[in-house]
Nucleic acid binder design. Sequence first.
DNA 1: TACAGTTGAACTGTACTACAGTTGGTCGGC
DNA 2: GCCGACCAACTGTAGTACAGTTCAACTGTA
Lengths: 216, 216
Amino acid sequence: MSALDGLEVRRTTTAQQLADGLSERIMAGAFGPGDRLRESAIAAELGVARNTIREAVRILELTGLVRYEVNRGAVVIAPTAEKIEALYTARERLETAALVRTPRPEQLAAITEAFDALCDAATNDPSAIVDRDLAFHQAIVALLDSTRLDEFFASLTQELRFYLTVLAKDETADEVIAEHRAILDAVRLGDRDRAVAEIHAHVEVSVERLKAVLKN
Amino acid sequence: MSALDGLEVRRTTTAQQLADGLSERIMAGAFGPGDRLRESAIAAELGVARNTIREAVRILELTGLVRYEVNRGAVVIAPTAEKIEALYTARERLETAALVRTPRPEQLAAITEAFDALCDAATNDPSAIVDRDLAFHQAIVALLDSTRLDEFFASLTQELRFYLTVLAKDETADEVIAEHRAILDAVRLGDRDRAVAEIHAHVEVSVERLKAVLKN
DNA sequence: TACAGTTGAACTGTACTACAGTTGGTCGGC
DNA sequence: GCCGACCAACTGTAGTACAGTTCAACTGTA
């Protein structure tokens, strides 16, 4: 702790801030899936130059929330059955790989804590359920002890979180809790096969639920 | 096969082409690790506007070859012991996860083929050894049946390939072949534990070799 | 000689303008 | 109702300008 803690001159660029802001707005639903991000409009509204917006959007592209189409500019990603399946498949492989490892005590504690937070949200703050849900799985992936995989999983998570919010999945909290408790229990008991099976089931159910919502 | 096959008007932007070109040049050693990509210089040399170069470099950032530093612009990534370890750890986790799965016949064939290509390169085209080496591992990761993980692994591979070329690792081809044959044999025999152990050893050795080179 | 402070050139970040080419819709003709 | 021409909006790219930052060379001082 230095005497200069907290004193930090802005160590970021306008484009970066714009990217963060746009990301928030998109996640909040200001732009729907498939929407185009019109440069001039955004630039005018936010009072910055168009090329700055372009940079911001390129930065956004890093996080996977938008992609570029030639002569159409930036487009917000849109969920499809294939994309959702691919997403969950990757998740399932990573979590499966994580669950066959023996957790260190603090890792087990982190997972347990994540689960408790999820339970808490279920009763006290339903809007946070999705976040806590994803955080629980992030804690599982952390068992792999790989920062690169943690980051990758986080990017999958970000994408998924977007899909979940736009699809307004309204799963009953009870189900969610039950599924996650089953995973947690298996992990705590050291029953790897069951943990893996539970994750598999959890993914399967989730994908089906989402695909059902997709079809409206 | 349509009569119009191959007829495709340029479905790409200048910035994209520049990104590809720059990527090639960097991989070829035109820019070393830690080098800054000076926008005006590149723009002048290639006869394009500076903002176009900026866009190209932002696209490059997607592939992980460069990263941006505030007020210093784009900088070519540089290997450090930590980064190399993180890279190989992620690789090891992914390949381990892949090797506990039961390969389908065509997957096994693909891995075998990759190995044969590696052997061929060892005698006929030493410059291709690194590529074939990485392709072999990509074939292993393909066992996971996840396009998202395939893509992620490919990005790790790209990064690693760069480090390998700049570090000019001159491993003897014999060693490489031997290590990979050990992995292949274990896979073919369905001996998962041994396959995983071989991958682990392979990664361990590789990291140590690279770290040794890093220290000059 | 070593070191701190100053200075200036080079470069990035951002804004603004301009224009050719593309896209997507609208409108009139059939 | 379908087709093609036309038009408005927008992207991709070029070019210019300038404030703020970085970095290395230079200068003065102990």
